[in-house]
Amino acid sequence: MTAANNQASRYDPAFANELYSIENGHYIKQCMQCGLCVVTCPARHLMDLQPRKYFKAIQAGDRDRVLKANTPWLCTSCNLCTVRCPRGIPIIDVMHGMKLYLAQKQGVKSAPGALFSKTFFDVMLKRGRQWEAWLTQMYFLKAGPSAIKDALKMMDVAQPMVLKRRLPLAPAKTIKGKSQLKKIYEKAAALAKEGH
């Protein structure tokens, strides 16, 4: 790849436009690069690209860097950047959109956050409510062998939880309107797809 080509991919408007068209993606255009989100973000020290640069990379259409960045997966939805953003960008909503985009593009196993979110959703849709103990088990099962090690590291936290009956292993109630919920979801997902 020549240097010029490399540069071209760094400023690829087609890629920028693709991301502008995802849910809430259009907000990224109005970032004026003040950098307030960066100092605001509690997870910034773990990010490959801190939020401002992440948005700048999207505006530039820098495909490689955007696709590789762990930025959205570190977002905790604490909302602080969103309430502070001087340009009114709902940053956590943008991050939701990016996470959905990345999961669709790269598969739910490409990032732990993608898998966890998907598992959470699956449990919820199936039962109408969350069942935290089940969610945890499902997640580690789906994540595969390497995750088991992580799970074991968590045992010191999980054990007292179980002891204190805060992770009931018996399934919680499911709701009556499960199919109603599913219909609502499906319709909403279809509408959202039409919307952009």
Binding site: G35, L36, V38, V39, R84, P86
Partner: peptide, 13 residues
């Protein structure tokens, strides 16, 4: 003025 430093970046905290 060399004692004045301009830094592009909006102050957070």
């Amino acid at each position: 003025d060399e004692n004045v430093i301009f830094i592009k970046g909006k102050v957070g905290e």
